[in-house]
Computed example of a mutant assay.
Amino acid sequence: MVKLPAGACNAHCHVFGPRERFAYAPDAPFVPQHDAPKEALFALNDRLGLQRCVVVQSACHGFDNSAAEDAVAARPQDYRAIALLPADVGNGELRRLDACGFRGVRFNFMGHLGSQVPVADILALATRLEPLGWHLQLHGAPAMLGAQAQALRESPVPVVIDHMGRADAALGLNQPAFRQLMQLMAGGRFWVKLSGMDRMSRTGAPYVDAQPFARALMDSFADRVLWGNDWPHPNHAGPIPDEDELVRLIVQIAPAADLLELLMVQNPQRLYRFG
């Protein structure tokens, strides 16, 4: 077992249900076969040595962020959340969620996750997120970055890109989608989650074809990278990753102690404001 530094953060995971208490949205683009309640998440993080955590609201619960809110409320010092919200959400609700430990809003640009919000509306919301110290989080297919890159550069708040932009590991580091991500990151406004190697890989565990993407981002932008295991791995097309193996692979991404501290502790502390 890899010994992670004190305060290590799992910056990307989800909670589902339990459905008897937190119903799935009637128009949800997917409904999990099994619930993934906060107790299971707590047990996993505790076993792996992940003291801190960011719960990302799932599309299966729609705009009802109650399950994520409930998880954070149980561990208010060490857990934070990212909301799913309509772009015209009221400022009062934003302030309420901020007090509950939410730190950003996620927008999906993946076809299987429903309709997409126009970028102009997202940026209009971002101007209202800025006083709260929140950020945007974007999850999209590789083509999304290229199509929205110029507009995203105008964001008044940080923009976090999920799962290394969902690049295809088989296409190599020089593929246009990954070059676009590297160019966005060079602007200083962007952050990226070094998660989803299992989704990018075409060779399977231990994802040797995807590891170079994470290392390239770590090497160039060590102060704006985050790590998460994406538990419980919703809509996963391949074998579900082994959680212990994902943790062991962290030291392949950040082999030096100072890099590990940045990735797992300092960067999430700065973005999500734990404590």
Rank of each mutant, 00 (worst) to 15 (best):
C13E: 13
P158F: 08
R189M: 11
D78Y: 07
F16N: 07
E154L: 10
L85K: 00
Q33C: 05
C53T: 02
Q180P: 04
P176I: 01
A177V: 03
Q137F: 10
D46C: 09
P76M: 03
L249E: 01
A214S: 14
A149Q: 09
F63Y: 15
D258L: 09
L132R: 14
L145C: 06
R80C: 06
A237V: 10
D258E: 14
P29V: 11
Q211G: 08
S66L: 11
N174D: 07
R19I: 12
P118L: 00
R273D: 08
D219C: 11
I161H: 03
G187L: 09
A28T: 11
V119L: 13
H135I: 02
Q269G: 10
E20T: 10
M1R: 07
Q77D: 13
D230I: 04
P255K: 10
V247C: 12
Q175W: 01
A25P: 15
Q77K: 14
N174V: 00
A126E: 09
E245Q: 14
F63I: 06
P212H: 14
A167C: 10
L173W: 05
H34K: 13
F221W: 15
M144P: 02
H14R: 03
H236Y: 09
L132E: 12
D168E: 10
Q148D: 04
L152I: 03
V56G: 03
F22K: 12
D162K: 06
T203A: 05
L84E: 12
A257C: 03
P176Q: 00
A214Y: 06
Q137G: 14
W134D: 05
G196P: 04
A177G: 06
P118S: 00
S58I: 07
Q266R: 13
K3D: 13
C13V: 07
G133S: 09
M197K: 02
Q175L: 00
P32A: 04
R52Q: 14
R270T: 10
A6V: 04
R248A: 08
